[in-house]
Design a protein around this nucleic acid. Structure first.
Lengths: 128, 128
DNA sequence: CCGCATCCATTACGATACTG
DNA sequence: CAGTATCGTAATGGATGCGG
């Protein structure tokens, strides 16, 4: 099983889990979705997201930094006044988005199943 | 078919995100993986997981409760002494596992790309 | 055997105010 | 415009001990 001289089979999973975590956190997928296509500026990105939910610049910044760190988006600074910073998806980011959309599609297909499961669970744990 | 509670397109995404969160949390995928196939008892599950990493019963219990609530695993109690409780994947859980494995596969394929991206990011943010 | 109760550490999220 | 600094709250993960 855990055969080769690859440190430990656990170490490999650290990066994997950290990438998977992007699927589960509140903003990453949304940001990646909005950053697909044309490069987009920070404030435009913020405004786009805020068409449905408020996001503080602190949180958006942090999310973008993580995505940049993981190689899913690139950040390009133009040395002009006022500042101009553009974010865009990398190839890796686009593939990630693709996978994310697949699972989201599956989840949405089975949404009623999830909701039913939850109601049943509540019913069971509530009864005396 | 209560199409009336479709309030905003955001509401739909709450359940979606909660399911996606299972991909990102520390234990869900692992538990689901170990629960695939034969039904498995609580302590056996714990021991299996602990072949690689310690997990407290509190955390395992909480993870299982969530998965049960979302309809990904079922919990069956046998009224015997000592207690016997078996967990097993539902159809939904198996599909979930399938999707999870796909993304994990993709992530592992590009693992070196992620690691490289991180090193470059560090290098950039470190330089004066 | 299968948990739950308690307590603690760490991290995510968020509102607000302020700068190059 | 594109962030950082500061503060506070909530959720998650974990160690340990008890109980049917």
């Amino acid at each position: 099983m855990s055969s080769t001289n690859r440190a430990s089979s656990d170490d490999e999973f650290i990066v994997v889990r950290e990438i998977l975590s992007r699927l589960g956190d509140k903003w990453s997928v949304r940001v990646i979705h909005e950053a697909a296509g044309e490069p987009i500026r920070f404030t435009d990105l913020k405004r786009k997201i805020e068409r449905s939910t408020p996001i503080s610049s602190r949180v958006l910044t942090r999310t973008l930094k993580q995505l940049e760190r993981d190689g899913l988006v690139t950040r390009r600074v133009y040395p002009v006044v006022p500042p101009r910073v553009e974010y865009r998806l990398t190839e890796l980011g686009q593939q990630f988005l693709h996978h994310a959309q697949e699972i989201m599609g599956w989840t949405m297909e089975h949404q009623t199943a999830f909701e039913t499961a939850r109601r049943e669970f509540e019913a069971q744990t509530t009864e005396q």
